[in-house]
Design a protein around this nucleic acid. Structure first.
Lengths: 109, 109
DNA sequence: TTGACACGTTAGATTTTCCTTACGTATAGT
DNA sequence: ACTATACGTAAGGAAAATCTAACGTGTCAA
């Protein structure tokens, strides 16, 4: 009934799935930067960078601030907590399994 | 000259970008499981689950072990270190910026 | 052997990504 | 006013993802 297609990028996971977008985020971690400076770091055209920045903005990972004719982009690292939280959940599962193993070994000499 | 398209998923970042794949990984964090059990956790058909598992296997996040007519899937969490490392790199940038700020405040009363 | 079960794989349709090349808009400088 | 700069956006197309339905393969059980 419902064939499907590639899912749209709606969260931080999808946002950092693309190498170019990761480079942009990494660059912005070092401080706010205008588009031209960001475009220089990455192997795609400037419009492509604009589109990637639009995706990052749509997810809330960056915001723009007009500064004369430049637009400085600013990173919001707290939006990555979504990812951190998920990874941490996995760790908790992992710890639980270690606990069960330890208890098992303790009860079986 | 070189139009383009969506990039294939070749690393852990792309692997965890899909919600269904994240659910599968989370389920496997609780222990090895056969496909039917995994398919019960997720809102897509069993063949779709097989395809997602193929993606995860291609990235090295899971491996299969034949067990009679079942195939139990096993998680390899260390493949997620790629993600952890990148996030940690961001933290380091962040710390550096805090350091510079602290030094600045120290030198400017 | 016959049948049910567990699973992978193929075929096909649809959606979205992601690029480049034009073009449009606003600001700064002369 | 005119020009260059900085950026976004629209148009167009190729590549890949992602689903379901149908089919194929191997294993257990009676």
């Amino acid at each position: 009934m419902s064939p499907a297609g590639a899912p749209p990028v709606t969260d931080a996971f999808g946002a950092i799935a693309h190498p170019v977008r990761r480079s942009l985020v990494t660059a912005l971690a070092g401080g706010d930067k205008p588009v031209n400076e960001l475009a220089a770091v990455v192997p795609v055209s400037r419009p492509a960078v604009s589109q990637h920045l639009a995706v990052l903005r749509g997810v809330g990972l960056v915001s723009e601030q007009r500064h004369g004719r430049e637009r400085r982009y600013h990173l919001h690292p707290e939006r990555l907590d979504e990812v951190r939280k998920w990874m941490h959940t996995l760790d908790r599962f992992w710890d639980d399994r270690l606990d069960r193993l330890a208890r098992h070994l303790e009860e079986n000499p």
